[in-house]
Design a protein around this nucleic acid. Sequence first.
DNA 1: AATGAATGAGCGTTCATTCAT
DNA 2: TATGAATGAACGCTCATTCAT
Lengths: 191, 191, 191, 191
Amino acid sequence: MPKIVDHEQYRKELLKKCFDLFAEKGYGSITMRQIAEGLGVSTGTLYHYFPSKQSLFEQLAQEICEQDVSAALAELEGAQTLQEAMEALGRYLVNNEDYFVKWTYIWIDFCQHQETNVIQNTSIFKHTNKQYQQAVYDFLGVQDPVLASFVLSFVNGLILEKLWGDETVDFIEQCALLGKMLTAYLPQSSN
Amino acid sequence: MPKIVDHEQYRKELLKKCFDLFAEKGYGSITMRQIAEGLGVSTGTLYHYFPSKQSLFEQLAQEICEQDVSAALAELEGAQTLQEAMEALGRYLVNNEDYFVKWTYIWIDFCQHQETNVIQNTSIFKHTNKQYQQAVYDFLGVQDPVLASFVLSFVNGLILEKLWGDETVDFIEQCALLGKMLTAYLPQSSN
Amino acid sequence: MPKIVDHEQYRKELLKKCFDLFAEKGYGSITMRQIAEGLGVSTGTLYHYFPSKQSLFEQLAQEICEQDVSAALAELEGAQTLQEAMEALGRYLVNNEDYFVKWTYIWIDFCQHQETNVIQNTSIFKHTNKQYQQAVYDFLGVQDPVLASFVLSFVNGLILEKLWGDETVDFIEQCALLGKMLTAYLPQSSN
Amino acid sequence: MPKIVDHEQYRKELLKKCFDLFAEKGYGSITMRQIAEGLGVSTGTLYHYFPSKQSLFEQLAQEICEQDVSAALAELEGAQTLQEAMEALGRYLVNNEDYFVKWTYIWIDFCQHQETNVIQNTSIFKHTNKQYQQAVYDFLGVQDPVLASFVLSFVNGLILEKLWGDETVDFIEQCALLGKMLTAYLPQSSN
DNA sequence: AATGAATGAGCGTTCATTCAT
DNA sequence: TATGAATGAACGCTCATTCAT
């Protein structure tokens, strides 16, 4: 089945290149023509590999999410204390600020273009959400889902501030503060 | 004598009705025709009161922000301790969840439709941002801008989770947790 | 009939102010709202005095044409020779260049907005055309309609060049040349 | 392989058909929908070949001007005297009266729809203007720019008269008169 | 597999005109 | 007489998608 291998491989190549294209203009604003042009193919070819703009995005989201989670966990492991872990998280966010802001931007933009009540039903949405949550559980080493949600919300909120153009927010400072608060709240914890 | 219409008053009435219309579909997806239809007027009349879709939104944002801030501060005052304040915040968020989610949705959507570098320059954006920040300062009764940003990010992150359709996040639980963490972190504080 | 007098008088006042308004933007581009605003009245009032945009223009054209012709003849009379008359014409055109260019602009613009086959039937059009032609006859003191058409075409052509933004055309130079050519062609003539 | 269409060739075909469409209604009055309909394509297809209405016109103007100039010079060459040349010009104008009137009509209409101060800067305008002027120089065989402007203004004025619906102007008569005047004014000239 | 020409409903916006007051 | 709110068809233009080649 050499044909299929080529097809799949080419599809993934195209997918990777799509991230920056979406990031430049957002899901809603970039046109399929522009994506095709950016990929160096025709619109016909683009539709040969992806049945619709929405499907293209969902496949991209799947791909991104998988890479994201494993990369983050790899980079963040090794911290001995919660404080250290939070500081590592801060550095990680700062180092990849552009990436996270872009991705959050694209993701929100995609959501805007779905019917509100459809979001939850979209399998891609449920799926990636779970993956991110699981990653936070792993990172914290804590089973508490409330705490996990807390951290996830906090991180998303931080990125949202940046997305809104608030330059005064400092990821490192904020994560350090979170570390102190967590340490004060969970004195026994040593991650 | 023109038709008996108080231009300003009617404009504000239309503005109020616009909130739900924007909330239903988002800034980018709703059309001026749909807004006009929802208001029960013609597109011509809509443009008689508002020079453009963007201006309509900005006027709405201004109006909403002013109501928001004063309403929130009124409802949240009276807490004796940080923990109580956070519990009040949680209840306030729950009680107005729909409203906050909608408004955050609309607001983000509007931002997506601006040129990224234009957002910060837009006076409406700067203005409302400052108003919200000041409100958080007042609420916390703390001068620490890092702490204030922390709380603001956290709240925005919570709303964002809801916007994404995550039903597992519980505002009350989350705010209570924030209260405990703040109390642990600031043991001297009694707000 | 005091009412009618007031009405007529006010109508003429409005009419006069309209020239500059049309000249600023052209017949096709200026809106009735803008005209009303420029006149300091409401659109309703504007329509009270003029049944339509086209009618407003036609009344203006009538008014302008009458003023034009008498003013021009008054200013140009007194020349002893054809050469002198042409030099006077050149100075007259230069002195009123803005006015003629504007008026030609408005007039052409109005024609564009009529159905082509309607132009000739429009009484206003026929009427003003004849008035201008008669003025040229009077000015040249020559019965030759071919010569009269020649001069009229030439003058209109000059103004058209200016309208197109050709700064290299010099009315005085051109009229002097016309004078020399006419003198050479009609050696016996002394106007 | 795409559909069998030579993009450039088809574009030029569409362009040619556009002349009559513009001529029927003028630049400002014809709509892109009407042009598309007249061409037998959808608006989408029209925009596939031309990025905007203005660009469509400018491309048409370029094309027309080039054809015009070479055709005119070819037809007018061979006259032995100025008088003959002018008579040839008269016949040429008569033979193509419809065409010149239409083209002048379209061209003026286009100018009305540009900002006045933009006209001169528009490269298409400068370019075609120069081409027409050079053609007049060649035709007259005279270096005198004043004389050249004279003839150009006169011809434009003639066409303008026709555009205004003045049926009494006779191109042949007028050009013959111009020939006589030129001959009287430049007795030594034999073209 | 790959192309790009073609579609057409729909966008934000405009404006001459009408009419209730 | 005078007002200005109200209309709605029409404008230039866009873009996800289809399909003949």
